[in-house]
Design a protein around this nucleic acid. Structure first.
Length: 550
RNA sequence: GGCCCUAUGGUCAAGCGGUCAAGACACCGCCCUUUCACGGCGGUAACCCGGGUUCGAUUCCCGGUAGGGUCACCA
């Protein structure tokens, strides 16, 4: 009897059958097969999205395929509905899968795509390694491992189970049998053939983003099968990515240090190494130092954070693209209206150092993204955002006509030099909020150049001369007249040249009107606002301001 | 601590043996302008340090330093 039979009993699957069941994919030369392997507990965050874009672009540009595999090998509890959430949030950003786990079942011939359902498959390969003497059952208890670690610390040896410290790597069949039959728990460890220290050979791997990586070979007897019979990430990765015929493995640079383990496993299993693409981490500034964004500590890593602030998904996407590929921004300037998918993404344009998330840049990108959206789209977007995050705003938006709101959103956007006022939903709502009576607020403020008496004068004359039918230039002529009558320069330049001749200039006069109408000193063109506000509201607001001043 | 990754202005980044070291964001100034936004023009601001190699190093080599990551029966 063999050790593997003792452990697994009879296995009616074989390597040959698996190879036959999951053949090489019938794709044209150069087609890339990528995958996303989230765990069903974690939510999708900015870092995942960053990687997912690479997977998606690589697959889609090469006419290959991207699939979704759920990596649920952890004992951690499965979060109800997590898979739907993962699929939904990625799809929200235009990342859709060609194969793998879907919201209702699985799609594709290389499944199952839940690692928890692949136990039988993993066992085939564990058994093989066992039979070849490349793996062994290890009966070390937690406290024994702890003791070993302490000994290693005192001797300044590398921590871990390997070589001398791997007590069970040469366990006899009889002893293993005795222990197993007595019900002792155990894990299966790889019997590494690597060496520690001086004797270590170097391995070299060509990373598609980082170029040649050279590092010492693995020497640790890494656990490949946990005591519950489920493989560790390392083992599942190697088996799955081989069997699912993944060509490119995109993952964060935190995996770099376990690369030697993976290389050894691929080698011992006789599988071809996929092309690794180790991406740089997204960083954040913390006390003057860059550090990896952490999903526990940093809300800005969460996609909901941006959604709640009201950033459009396209803005997030474009921003990510600008840090993903250094030439994207340039391309975007040259092709302002082209679909992002036409940009040719390439791995060698990727930065290898961690980028700091820059909200300023996001804002800038967002302005341009929103400029490309129609008022209709922005209206829908704003309403959807309000419905989720600001009920008061939503109620208000629904009270006013869609036509008014859309016109407000569109102010100055169709000019030769369009305005770019719109950044994110909460800011957009605020930007147009003075059109809504319940948000409009008079402010107790007057430009320094205008006395209170003049302010009242300006507003009374303005009301007296106002004709809602006037076009922009006729209306402004009247404002000029008012300015002139009260001793304000018709042109700001005149005032700047000879400030002693005037109280101020027509801009100051306009500011008073602006304050009366919108309650703030800055806004888009007053005439446009007047037209949208309507004569009744306009006269009311001005009258109210006059009262306020008196 | 071992191993690995990274190192150009405040941020993102081109450049990879000879450049007055691109560009974008941010910031400042000017122009345009009834305010703001947009746009235009201009400006401040950078090759981590030390040794080599070379006629010449930001670029190549070595050594430091700094930052990051990783050293689990988590992924």
């Amino acid at each position: 009897m063999k050790l593997s039979e003792l452990i697994f009993g009879n296995i009616d699957l074989s390597r040959e059958e698996l190879e036959k069941k999951y053949p090489e994919r019938n794709f044209p030369e150069g087609a890339k097969v990528t995958r996303l392997g989230p765990s069903p507990t974690g939510f999708i965050h900015l870092g995942n999205l960053y990687g997912a874009f690479i997977d998606e672009r690589l697959a889609s540009q090469s006419k290959g395929l991207i699939y979704l595999r759920i990596e649920d090998t952890d004992d951690k509890r499965y979060v109800e509905g997590a898979v739907d959430t993962i699929i939904d949030s990625l799809s929200y950003f235009d990342i859709n899968f060609d194969e793998g786990v879907t919201k209702d079942g699985e799609l594709g011939a290389y499944g199952p795509y839940y690692q928890s359902e692949r136990e039988d498959i993993y066992k085939v390969y564990v058994k093989e390694l066992l039979d070849k003497g490349m793996a062994y059952p290890c009966f070390l208890k937690e406290d024994e491992i702890e003791a070993i670690r302490e000994l290693q610390m005192s001797k300044k040896d590398n921590p871990g189970i390997y070589g001398e410290y791997a007590k069970y790597r040469d366990i006899s069949f009889e002893e293993a049998k005795k222990r197993i039959e007595s019900g002792e728990e155990f894990v299966i460890r790889l019997k590494s053939s690597g060496h520690d220290g001086e004797a270590a050979k170097y391995i070299s791997v060509e990373d598609a983003i980082r170029g040649n990586l050279a590092m010492p070979e693995n020497f640790q007897d890494t656990v490949i099968l946990k005591k519950n019979g489920i493989p560790t990430y390392h083992f599942a990765h190697v088996v799955d990515d081989h069997l699912m015929r993944t060509t490119h493995v995109v993952r964060g640079e935190e995996w770099l240090s376990s690369l030697p383990v993976h290389v050894e496993l691929f080698d011992k299993l006789g599988f071809e190494l996929p092309i690794y693409c180790h991406t740089a981490q997204l960083m954040k500034m913390d006390n003057g130092n860059k550090r990896k964004l952490s999903k526990r500590k940093d809300p800005e890593l969460s996609l909901d954070y941006y959604k709640e602030l009201g950033y459009h998904k396209d803005a997030i996407k474009e921003y990510l693209l600008t840090i993903l590929n250094s030439n994207f921004e340039e391309w975007r300037i040259e092709n302002p209206n082209t679909d992002w998918r036409e940009f040719e993404f390439s791995l060698d344009k990727m930065s290898t150092s961690g980028a700091l998330f820059d909200i300023n840049k996001l804002d800038d990108v967002s302005k341009d993204v929103l400029l490309r959206k129609s008022a209709d789209e922005i209206y829908d977007f704003l309403l959807a955002w309000a419905a989720e995050y600001d009920i008061e705003a939503k109620n208000t938006l629904e009270k006013y006509s869609a036509g008014l709101i859309k016109s407000a959103l569109d102010m100055g956007r169709n000019d030769a030099k369009p305005r770019k006022d719109l950044i994110n939903a909460s800011q957009i709502f605020d930007f147009i909020s003075y059109f809504f009576d319940e948000y409009f607020q008079l402010r107790d403020y007057m430009p320094a150049e205008v006395s209170k008496e003049d302010g009242i004068d300006i507003l009374e004359k303005y009301l007296a001369s106002y004709n809602h039918e006037d076009d922009n230039s006729l209306w402004f002529e009247k404002i000029r007249e008012i300015a002139d009558e009260l001793g304000y320069a018709l042109k700001p330049k005149d005032f700047k040249k000879n400030p002693e001749n005037f109280k101020g200039h027509v801009g100051h006069v306009s500011t008073v009107i602006r304050l009366a109408l919108v309650g703030r000193a800055q806004s888009p063109d007053i005439w446009t606002i007047q037209q949208l506000l309507g004569e009744t509201v306009l006269r009311e607001r001005v009258a109210r301001y006059i009262d306020e001043l008196k």
